Simulated assay, not measured.
Amino acid sequence: YQGGEPGADAEYLIVRQYDAHAWVEAWFPGQGWVRVDPTAAIAPERIEFGLREAVAEEGSFLENDWTSPQRYGDLAVLQWASLQLDKINYHWQRWVVGYQGQSQMDLMSRLPGGIGMRELGYITAGIVGMALLLAGLVTAWQYLRVESRDPLGRLVSRWYRLCDRSGVPVRHGETPAQLASRLAQAKPAAAGTATAFARLINKHYYGRDSETGHHGELAKMKRLLATMKRQADRPSTSSSKG
C-alpha cells in the first residue's frame, strides 16, 4: 500500500483499498529478484501524492462509486462525518474485536479501586450467571404461557405420562397413532380408546374443522383420557382350565 490519511484526531492512519500499490519483481541472472516499479516512471505523481491527487485533473477519482464519502473530500462536512464514523469503527475493532492481551492490561489500569483480573473474572462470572438465570426464567415463563394457551398440549402431556406409567415410554419422532398402537399391545383393554384418542389428536392439528368443533373434540378427548386411565389401571385377568 502507498499513501493513507490521518484519522480523526490523528490517532491512527487510514489506509484504504484505493491506496493499494503493485509492482513487478523480475529475475535477473547474477542479481536475483529485482523490484521494478513502472509506476515510478509512468506516473510518478501516483507514488508521491497518492491516487486522489494523481487523477485530480481528469476527475476520475471514484467515478463509479458515487456513494463513497471519499469522493467528495472537498466538502468539509462530509469529510468530518466520514472521519467520525471511521473513528467509531476503529475503536470498535480495537476494544471489542481485538480485545486481548495488552488491551486488557491497559483497561485494567484505568479501572478504579484497584480491580485486577481475578476480581474482574468474578464480576464477569456473576454477570454471566445472572444473565443465564434471567434467560432461564424468561424461557420457563414463555413455556408456561404456551402451555396455558394450549389445552390440547396439556391433554397430550397427560397421555404421555399415562403411557409411561403403563410401560410404554414415548419415543422420539413417534406419531400419536404409533404410540396408541404400542399402548394397545401393552394394555389391550385400552386399545379402542387409545386409537380414538390418537385420531382426535391428528384431527385437531391437521383437520379443517371450525374452532367450535375443536372445543367439542377437547371435551371428548378429556372423557376418552379418563376412560383410558381406568382401562389401563385395570389389572390383567387370566383364565386357566383344570
Rank of each mutant, 00 (worst) to 15 (best):
Q2E: 00
P6Y: 13
A8P: 02
A8G: 00
A10E: 08
E11P: 03
E11N: 06
R16M: 09
Y18N: 14
D19Q: 08
D19F: 05
D19H: 15
H21L: 05
A22V: 08
A26T: 13
W27N: 01
F28I: 15
F28H: 00
F28D: 02
P29L: 10
G30P: 02
G30T: 01
W33L: 11
V36I: 13
D37T: 00
A41N: 07
I42F: 06
I42A: 04
P44V: 08
I47R: 06
F49C: 03
L51C: 07
R52E: 12
R52S: 06
V55N: 08
V55E: 11
L62H: 13
L62P: 03
E63G: 09
T67G: 01
S68R: 11
P69L: 10
P69Q: 07
D74G: 05
L75K: 09
V77D: 15
L78V: 11
S82L: 08
S82V: 05
S82T: 07
S82F: 12
S82I: 04
L83D: 14
Q84S: 06
Q84T: 08
K87W: 01
K87G: 00
N89L: 12
Y90H: 04
H91F: 09
W95P: 06
V96E: 04
Y99I: 10
G101R: 11
G101A: 10
M108F: 11
R110A: 11
L111W: 02
G113V: 12
G113H: 06
G113M: 11
M117W: 10
G121H: 03
G121Q: 03
A125I: 10
V128K: 15
G129W: 06
A131M: 15
L132K: 15
L132I: 07
L133S: 01
L134V: 11
Q142I: 07
L144W: 10
L144E: 14
R145N: 14
S148R: 14
R149H: 06
R149V: 14
G153H: 01
G153I: 09
R154Q: 06
S157G: 08
W159G: 06
Y160R: 11
R165L: 08
S166Q: 07
P169W: 00
V170N: 05
E174D: 02
E174T: 05
T175G: 12
A177Q: 10
A177E: 03
A180N: 00
A180G: 07
S181Y: 12
R182H: 14
Q185A: 09
A190T: 05
A191W: 14
T193L: 12
A194P: 09
T195A: 03
T195Q: 07
A198F: 07
A198I: 01
R199P: 03
H204Q: 13
H204E: 12
Y205R: 15
D209S: 13
D209N: 12
E211K: 01
T212P: 02
G216T: 15
E217C: 15
A219P: 04
A219K: 09
M221G: 00
L224E: 03
L225G: 00
A226D: 15
T227A: 10
T227M: 02
S236Y: 10
T237D: 08
S238D: 08
K241N: 14
